[in-house]
Design a protein around this nucleic acid. Structure first.
Lengths: 352, 352
DNA sequence: GTTAGCACTCGACCTATTAGAGTGCTAACA
DNA sequence: TGTTAGCACTCTAATAGGTCGAGTGCTAAC
């Protein structure tokens, strides 16, 4: 049995109706609404087929039908194909966009929080955004300064002007000249290097050149490695609107709500989502995970829509919307599309 | 009518039983359990009085009694008085303490997250902790470094070794000598000053001394002010275990759960709690808010226990536990007490 | 292949009915 | 006068029975 044109139309009708009402939809409803005037009996026959094929489900024998994960998948694929076409046809006007406008923010953190909030309030679903991640961590500048007699502070600037600090305690006081020499050594050797490329041999060579001060070099390198590692480990993720899940009865029971909230609290689970999205995202950069498809265990009852935004070559992050499987995919896809676009242009202006 | 000794005993028995079972407690239960052997009838009479006095409530006519906010308040006050005594008598042994032990953490943020997590998993309630706030922001060290030709990075270290960075774009390249001069000027003038004490006249004087470079001075001062202000505005708060509320049926219905989760998401509400605690905390530093007493609107159905920890003179933060009104106050008070103590000693060791 | 018709199913909702826990009150007791 | 036994009463939670209606599956006719 294959999915002929009529079956497709009926399936889409069922899903759309269900998305609007949130209740199982019966054959009569479809027979009335649809352009292809067919009796409820015929619809019923087709529906039976669709159940067999796994596109829709019957909660119980004498109830209407609801879409299965497979059904949603069909719908979303269809929808995204349409969107593709639309976007080629005309540049979208930005009418419903006002609410989306993100205030100009000076700090990255604040900006990201605002984006998350904007997303969640606009869609009424839960939202998340990951801080941009620098795939290549290239060192730009290193500076050691003496803070107190036995204590220096290392300032490490990497590509994209992310700044890290590390305080280093030293055994013996260090004089200005040596400090200057160390700074020269560090910068001439390391500037422009990717963190991954700092090999042991380079470090050994630097230590040799540093002579007595080899210990400090080691500490600085450690500090560099440490701060980068820390950065990789806990990818910053901002969330907003987790409480929105309570608006959807199918997610609001204790068991499920607790799982979802937990995922939002323990950002580690969301980290998965980010990596998954970054690695699998296709050319469009938008990804839809339905139910069981979700990379986050605790969100198997949700749908998750993610997208990557790009700040600059090799620097990107992920935004995501988490809601019920019967979410308004149309709206969510538009919103997320617009937002990534806006983010891109914003970063261009805001690049510091 | 006043609260005589027998009434007190009965009241405490009711509350303790309710804390254990979570169900309305009847007169028979009390008459059996209690040392002061009285018949259920007598207990009933007393209970009626206690209802009149507002210490306990009757969910419906033929049900047992549950404590009112006023009842809980009585219980907690009693408990805290006892604790006071206990602590004077003997230094508490640290037997149940293992789980509480917080791993040594190098970064403040990670430490705070761990503390929050430790609190929530140990108590099975929700927990929060605010980053330590420096009441007096004293400048310790300022360093300008050239990063690129037209760009310098200002590193600002304040009391407690909190480090802020600010990138400053300048119109014309600056030479090493001038940079050195500026650094000297900044440090000799500002070191050791409290932020609040940097007056306009001081700034004017510095600008005058800086001559051509007055613009940079202004930018640095702005950066200092800015970074301090940003710090004050969004007080960092870390939370953990919000999902624990689902373990308590009286908090787990949609309406209430949503409110509580929202409070945890929008940290602004928790900020209130921190300020409230900091300003009102008595000598012991532990505060208990029961139901309506809570400074956080969305937590009127919870009890909130907070405490201040002190890192150093004038530097403190707040930890808090949020749970149902029938929380195990005894355990919570002990835990929070121990944790603040441990935090204090940890900060002493970890002070860098 | 499509449709009308009809018996059937099953959850949602409403209404007793019952059981049990707990009360309030009265009358007797120390 | 405070305490207690006894008893009728109240109210909830749980169970069972009954009805309604939406929706189905199937058959037979078109």
């Amino acid at each position: 049995m294959n999915l002929d044109d009529r079956k497709k139309k009926i399936l889409l009708a069922i899903i759309k109706t269900y998305l609007e009402t949130g209740e199982p939809v019966g054959s009569r409803t479809i027979s009335k609404i649809e352009g292809l005037s067919l009796s409820s009996a015929t619809i019923r026959n087709e529906m039976a087929d669709l159940v067999d094929m796994g596109y829709i489900l019957q909660p119980h024998t004498s109830a209407g039908r609801i879409p299965s994960d497979k059904g949603y998948r069909f719908y979303v694929d269809q929808l995204m194909a349409e969107k593709e076409m639309e976007l080629e046809e005309r540049e979208r006007e930005t009418d419903e966009m006002k609410g989306l406008l993100v205030e100009k923010a000076d700090k990255m953190e604040r900006l990201l929080k605002q984006v998350a909030r904007s997303l969640s309030t606009n869609t009424n679903y839960a939202a998340m955004i990951s801080a941009p991640r620098y795939n290549i961590n290239r060192l730009k500048f290193i500076q050691l300064s003496r803070m107190e007699a036995n204590r220096i502070v290392a300032v490490i600037v990497v590509e994209g002007n992310m700044i890290k600090n590390q305080i280093i305690d030293i055994d013996e006081p260090i004089d200005d000249e040596t400090l200057l020499k160390l700074n020269m050594l560090l910068n001439t050797t390391l500037n422009g290097m990717a963190i991954e490329d700092i090999s042991l041999s380079i470090i050994a060579k630097m230590k040799q050149q540093a002579g007595d001060q080899a210990g400090i070099i080691a500490e600085v390198i450690d500090a560099v490695a440490e701060s980068i590692k820390a950065d990789e480990e806990d990818l910053e993720i901002y969330t907003s609107g987790a409480n929105n899940i309570f608006k959807y009865p199918e997610l609001a029971d204790n068991q499920k709500a607790s799982e979802i909230i937990t995922a939002f609290e323990e950002k580690k689970q969301l980290t998965n989502l980010v990596y998954e999205t970054l690695s699998h995202s296709d050319e469009r950069g938008i990804q839809v995970y339905i139910g069981e498809e979700s990379p986050v265990e605790n969100m198997k009852d949700c749908s998750v829509v993610t997208a990557t935004y790009e700040l600059d070559e090799g620097i990107h992050g992920t935004i995501g919307i988490i809601g019920p499987k019967r979410m308004d995919y149309d709206k969510v896809l538009s919103t997320i599309k617009k937002l990534t676009t806006e983010l891109d242009s914003m970063f261009k202006k805001n690049e510091r």
